[in-house]
């Protein structure tokens, strides 16, 4: 996260140092245009830093190792799923089923350990793959049956949640092997394992977003589906793959969450899709497609977690958290629209 945070920061610094460069023209204009590309993230990052500083000042407990590692662990699951959500949103899609898929993967993974006595690493992998299978159904409905992503995943939201309750009889699955606890509760030195999982996902998906065919095609499909098709991109196949990846991440998030509470909770992840969508959108992803980054999703997920954590520390009524997050989503999207209007207007002037 520090690398994504450092980049826009450094640029702002350069501006302050060389105001004379404006007169030279060329490089100034280029930097300004590039800055416009990241400006919504800069805004979100700014908000994140402001909240961080405010909470540090207002609560003595905020800037402690225990609290911050708690924040990171809490944010990890949301952030992992928000990264997948961002990829889906980049293709002009949406996935409402991530909470249900995470719960389904969590309880089925837990049942495999408890009832089928599968070793916990194997059960974890199977749990992740169950998420991937649910994602494949989503992807098939979107890419091949051509259902609107909202409808396809709304259906899966019900199906996955329903299967979760059917398979558990609506009772949490307890008695998981102690070794499994390491995924959600363990530490590598001072760093919580969920944070390491998150960093792994950031590295892999950062690469996928910016350096691979899949990333490039996702942006192309979301930006102009017809153009992508005319240029010979097999859009349906790539859409299926995008939803599969999102399913895998939801399954992974579900397994981490199960490990955190040492049980498979059928109620886990209700409303998780809204946090993931909010995180992606706060981080600059556009629901119209073609726009969104991994670093933005991370910033958004941590912004949401800081708000939740700060509300607890400052004894704010717990129900105000969602109100604040809703406001932040409004502000982030309005800002993004305003910025996009400016870019289009500039194009018409020149």
């Amino acid at each position: 996260m520090s690398s994504s945070a450092g980049r826009p920061d450094g640029r702002t610094g350069d501006f302050g140092k060389q105001p004379g460069a404006a007169a030279v023209g060329g490089p100034w204009g280029l930097v300004r245009r590039r800055l416009a590309d990241v400006i919504s993230q800069v805004a979100a990052l700014g908000a994140l830093l402001v909240i961080f500083v405010l909470l540090s000042l207002l609560s003595p407990n905020f800037l402690t190792y225990n609290n911050l590692s708690e924040v990171v662990v809490e944010a990890a699951v949301t952030a992992i799923i928000a990264i997948g959500m961002t990829l889906v949103i980049v293709t002009a899609g949406i996935d409402l089923s991530v909470g249900g898929i995470a719960a389904l993967a969590g309880v089925l993974g837990a049942m495999l350990m408890v009832d089928a006595h599968l070793s916990w690493p194997l059960a974890t992998v199977v749990g992740v793959l169950i998420g991937g299978a649910a994602g494949l159904v989503n992807g098939g409905l979107v890419g091949w049956v051509k259902l609107a992503p909202f409808i396809a995943t709304l259906g899966m939201m019900g199906v996955a949640r329903g299967l979760t309750f059917v398979s558990t009889g609506a009772v949490a699955v307890y008695g998981l092997p102690v070794g499994f606890n390491v995924l959600g509760q363990g530490y590598a030195g001072p760093i919580p394992i969920p944070a390491i999982c998150l960093i792994g996902v950031i590295v892999i998906f950062g690469f996928i977003f910016t350096r691979t065919k899949l990333g490039r095609y996702s942006y192309a499909i979301g930006s102009n589906h017809e153009a992508a098709r005319l240029m010979g991109i097999p859009a349906s196949r790539y859409l299926v793959l995008v939803y599969v990846l999102q399913g895998l991440l939801a399954g992974f998030g579900g397994m981490i969450a199960a490990s955190r509470v040492s049980s498979g909770q059928p109620n886990f992840g209700v409303g998780l899709e809204l946090d993931a969508i909010a995180a992606a959108v706060i981080g600059g992803a556009s629901l119209f497609g073609g726009q969104g980054t991994v670093s933005g999703a991370i910033i958004g997920a941590f912004l949401i977690q800081f708000i939740r954590n700060g509300s607890v520390l400052l004894n704010v009524n717990i129900y105000w958290q969602d109100v604040i997050i809703g406001l932040v989503v409004w502000i982030a999207v309005s800002w993004d629209q305003f910025r996009r209007q400016r870019i289009t207007e500039r194009a018409h002037v020149t």
Binding site: T212, K213, Y219, S223, M231, I233, Q291
Partner: peptide
């Protein structure tokens, strides 16, 4: 024009015919 507005000029010029460092199906490295 069939251009992807959110991609840059280079990406649009190569849309559907990208050059790769390493071929790994959908995960091919640009």
């Amino acid at each position: 024009l069939a251009l992807a507005d959110h991609l840059d000029v280079v990406a649009n010029l190569f849309l559907g015919r990208e050059r790769y460092l390493l071929r790994l199906g959908p995960f091919s490295v640009l």
